[in-house]
Design a protein around this nucleic acid. Sequence first.
DNA 1: CGACCATTTGATATGGATCAAGCGATGTGG
DNA 2: CCACATCGCTTGATCCATATCAAATGGTCG
Lengths: 229, 229
Amino acid sequence: MLTQSAIRNGSFKQAGTQSPGAPRAGAAAHAGTIELMGACMSFARNSEIYGENEPADYLYKIVSGTVRTYKVLVDGRRQVGAFHLPGDIFGFETGDEHTFSAEAITDCKIIVIKRSAVMALAARDNDVARQMWELTARELQRVQKHSLALIKTAEERVAGFLLEMADRVASGGTVELPMSRQDIAAYLGLTIETVSRSLKLLEDAAAIEVARRRRILLRNRPALRRLNG
Amino acid sequence: MLTQSAIRNGSFKQAGTQSPGAPRAGAAAHAGTIELMGACMSFARNSEIYGENEPADYLYKIVSGTVRTYKVLVDGRRQVGAFHLPGDIFGFETGDEHTFSAEAITDCKIIVIKRSAVMALAARDNDVARQMWELTARELQRVQKHSLALIKTAEERVAGFLLEMADRVASGGTVELPMSRQDIAAYLGLTIETVSRSLKLLEDAAAIEVARRRRILLRNRPALRRLNG
DNA sequence: CGACCATTTGATATGGATCAAGCGATGTGG
DNA sequence: CCACATCGCTTGATCCATATCAAATGGTCG
């Protein structure tokens, strides 16, 4: 729930004169972009944005920072479902409860939008409805791709992960990773040791260079793509 | 493509007076169900319904039989993305090409619907648009669940698979599997040997009984759920 | 500077893959 | 109706990729 999580973890920061409890849907109806319907909030590093099984009353659009969504498995292990970067919209569920938890990996600024407002708008505006559908479809494609990645070898998964991140955050050949090895491991279904060793293998193969722990230089993308399987 | 695949693999069987090349969208506009927009076709066991990268010009709704969608990986292995049973709609892609291939596991009767007709209808009818969206959303949930399954142990994957199939095809405690061990293995990211051994483990744990190769009796669902992780 | 935490590196264990028979249905031709 | 071939599956033996356990290292922040 917004109020709980917000008060517990983030500091409020309103967009214009709107209160997050009562965004004026009408105001956005002629704006074209749904983010004008929400309030901007700050979340500190490692703070919870929402928890699994909480009611999914809000959508979230990242202004700055990185978010992970994850599930805690019965045996205590974490499985990261996705990393979300600036511009990404997340927290959009099919049912009315979140199926994953969401946490800020870094300090984040996030626009929080009431779901019911978006849905009401979508019911009137075909264009908004189509946007929501496309959002779901893109997410489906992403998860399908990730699914396929999970049956590959460790080295292939790490190579694929770097290529994915390069597409999303790279400036030139440099990938600045916002997340820890632990997060990467939990995303790829591996251990941190295996991630570390796979990175070394890729480095030995001259495909990448680990400049600093979280700064990876892609030295040879064709090789990386080949190693991605 | 419909014509190619159809002529190659299936025998035509028209629904009413419609030809599959020119379904009369208008006829279905006031019907409420999209299947009235299509023609019913038969596909023989193991015949291809469509191939990866072919244009996704049609949707498919299964009347009878079972279908697998799959990808052939670079190393030649097959990964099954989903099994589709009577009532299921499949072949609905985000882009305009199929991202998986589809094959009939058993002899099938399938209603084939022109995608453009459905899309045109969805543009006018909010209700149809919402149905399409929900279809995508349900598929997303399924793939997400499958994703999580792929990081579990072999025994957990098989237990989960049996529970999934039980929800879909079970009459009482009996699950009649329409697919081979090879298909199951390719769906779960395992080998047939491991699937076979996992079934034996579940049988030893008194959770199931393998009556005939493709007839599984669920003897203890709580135990199965526990073994599912 | 010193403590801490994330990461790397090394040694060993193990779950599932691979390789190789064996077996039991199902079908086929004599 | 029965020998025989075939195919899908099971069972057994061994191997290998990755997990696990255990230090060592190094970057970061007080």
